[in-house]
Amino acid sequence: MLQLVIFSTLNGVLYGMLLFMMASGLTLIFSMMGVLNFAHASFYMLGAYFGFEISRRLGFWPSFFVAPLLVGALGALVERYGLRRVHKFGHVSELLFTFGLAFIIEELTQMFWGKLPVDYRVPPSLDFVAFRLLDTTYPAYRMFMLLTAIAMFVFLLAILTRTRIGLIVQAALTHPDTVAMLGHNVPRIFMIVFGVGAALAGLAGVIAGPALVTQPSMASSLGPILFVVIVVGGLGSLQGAFFASLLIGVVQTFAVAMNYSLAEAFGANAPPLLGDLWQVTIAQLAPIIPYALLVLMLILRPTGLMGTRET
């Protein structure tokens, strides 16, 4: 039991930090531009595939730095030549634009790399056991993922709160017009934020690719969870996204590890009228939990944990 708690907590925090690497960009983009970017998880997937492609040619470390930059540049281009033009037709057009983009990226990925998962492996330099606790080993690569995510978080926080461009971004979150009239080029700030958001998602993909599975459906399976994170955290709130990421990461990881069902709790006294429902375990319910949280949050507290607005 203790073993389960320790390792599930570690894995949950790791999963949560990975979610935050994506949710942070998504929520910043949303609060600045009002765009709910459906293609955000696609940048994560591109990060994994670019990482795979570059690491088999040049090795893992070059790909660790180059792949996120490529994804970031692609994101900046999407904003500059796509979203910015669609912007004048309103938010629905922007939403549909990113929706279409997500499908295009998925299809193109399948054309280039096929429908089956690619063989993106943990690099040998990180493929060892980090520690052993209560007869269970924990891989070093997971520790590396966790440290990367934490470093990224500290870096992002430092930029946002300590640099001039960070201040401009913070101000533009609430008052983009005022920021422009003080002489700052707000469209360029938007492009940078979109690019950095995409690069962060790309970095998450590069490091998650070897640990999880790099396949064309990885974007569409992760995308909805990201929306849950930013709604539960409060749209546009970075702190909210952070806590919601950890919450969902930990809750889901624990749920998957639990094999309890109602039938076990009630033993032989279980009334037969619900049939097989009694046999359903918490682990089987795990995929539903984030969405249940989403629905409940929207009903009970539409602004999310730390958000200030409803839409």
């Binding site: 017009d177 422009a180 009239m181 003080l182 002489g183 700052h184 080029n185 707000v186 469209p187």
Partner: peptide, 8 residues
């Protein structure tokens, strides 16, 4: 011109 250009 755009607002930020005018401000500048």
């Amino acid at each position: 011109l755009k607002p930020h250009q005018i401000a500048r």
